[in-house]
């Protein structure tokens, strides 16, 4: 069984109030490392066998049309070993 990962992030120019809220909470908990935080989504897609190039092309299409809204988000497709 193979696994394909799609990671979706808001584009840098789009305000991310959720990430900001997380970023502001961290120092209150004593974690002072973060200059900024942005929050995104990760999809783990299980497939039968090793992902083929055709399957990856299909995932890319699904990400473009559905998993991400490319008006405000960008995405990357990866294969997990």
């Amino acid at each position: 069984m193979g696994k394909i990962i799609v990671e979706v992030m808001l584009k840098p120019e789009i305000l991310d109030p959720q990430g900001q809220a997380v970023g502001k909470a961290l120092p209150r908990l004593g974690f002072t490392f973060a200059q900024s935080v942005r929050q995104g989504k990760r999809f783990e897609i299980e497939v039968a066998g090793d992902p083929t190039p055709a399957m990856l092309a299909d995932v890319e299409k699904a990400a473009e049309e559905f998993l991400a809204n490319t008006v405000i988000e960008s995405f990357v497709v990866k294969v997990e070993k």
């Binding site: 305000l15 109030p17 008006v71």
Partner: peptide, 17 residues
């Protein structure tokens, strides 16, 4: 309508959450 691309743009989280 925005997600269906009948209208442009997107509606995102309110600026003050």
């Amino acid at each position: 309508l925005a997600e269906a691309h009948l209208l442009p743009g997107a509606l995102t989280r309110n600026a003050d959450m």
